[in-house]
């Protein structure tokens, strides 16, 4: 073999190995993170941990568990996902059925959503704080749902938009040609065709809502109790981890690790479930 050819093939091999190791590092970091959380959290996880609220104060009290955070997080994520879907689905329908595809408004709104998606959650939190001062509501589950809902809207709307964008235009034409109005086309045909993808978007929104810490700091507060009403403050899993991890009391830190494991499990299950949903397209999808 010629020397230059051999060099080139060597270079090819070297490049391949570099890329493989880069990909390996990406993969290994996921494994490392999950392993860390499982190893640290597994021993702390118990029935009592999941079903009782912290006793004697979340930062110093040794007894109890993380029920306050689990309940708060689930309420918060449910509420904000419902809110975000209520806003996001109409937006996706607007972009794909009502607005003209070549028009300027579509581009502007998609850009706005993309940019909002990039806005850090601490900025949403700060904005939430300003909003609460103006409107005059206290730190509460309600305030959290509003602000986290706004945080999740771009994700839900943009994911749904991508889903509906893949619906063939002929299908819309077919509905129009039968005399369906835009709304009937949007609701009965386009949304129905995108149903599995819309489900995935919902799960993604839920995942983002339950995992976000910075925006709930300002808005939802923290408490040892399960919230009794929507105007009560609520604990959340991310903040339970953040606050309790720095406690000097080992038992409290156990609670942080347990909360981390619970949160990670929820996220992984959502991620896997969302993937299955896309793959196994719904019965009627064409």
């Amino acid at each position: 073999m010629e020397k230059s050819t051999r060099n080139r093939l060597l270079q090819e091999q070297a490049a391949l190995w570099m890329m493989r190791s880069a990909a390996f590092v990406v993969f290994a970091s996921l494994v490392a993170i999950i392993l860390t959380i499982v190893v640290k959290g597994w021993s702390s996880l118990s029935w009592e941990m999941l079903t009782s609220t912290p006793q004697g104060g979340y930062y110093l009290g040794k007894g109890g568990g993380i029920l306050n955070a689990i309940a708060g997080s689930v309420y918060l994520a449910l509420g904000s996902t419902v809110l975000a879907t209520g806003i996001g689905l109409p937006i996706a329908l607007y972009l794909n059925v009502y607005a003209s595809p070549s028009g300027r408004s579509v581009g502007m709104i998609r850009t706005a959503l993309d940019v909002l998606f990039g806005v850090p959650s601490i900025v949403y939190g700060s904005f939430g704080f300003v909003l609460m001062l103006w409107v005059g509501i206290k730190v509460s589950l309600f305030a959290g749902i509003i602000v986290v809902g706004l945080l999740v809207v771009p994700i839900v709307a943009r994911t749904m938009d991508e889903v509906l964008r893949s619906v063939r235009p002929e299908m819309k034409d077919a509905a129009f040609a039968m005399g369906a109005t835009r709304w009937e086309t949007a609701w009965k045909v386009v949304a129905r065709q995108g149903l599995p993808g819309l489900g995935t978007a919902l799960l993604m929104g839920f995942g983002r809502a339950i995992g976000d810490a910075a925006s709930v700091m300002f808005t939802t507060g923290f408490t040892d109790h399960v919230p009794g009403s929507i105007m009560d403050p609520a604990a959340t899993l991310p903040l339970a981890i953040f606050f309790q991890l720095s406690s000097p009391v080992p038992e409290v830190r156990e609670r942080a690790y347990a909360a981390a494991l619970v949160l990670t499990m929820i996220i992984l299950i959502l991620s896997i479930f969302g993937r299955l949903l896309v793959k196994r397209s719904s019965k009627h999808t064409i």
């Binding site: 990406v26 942080a256 991620s271």
Partner: peptide, 19 residues
């Protein structure tokens, strides 16, 4: 790889923090 990347992207930042 694609699901792994999705999962990495979905993990909340507080989990990265604890790690």
């Amino acid at each position: 790889a694609v699901p792994v990347l999705d999962m990495l992207g979905a993990i909340p930042s507080v989990i990265f923090g604890i790690w």
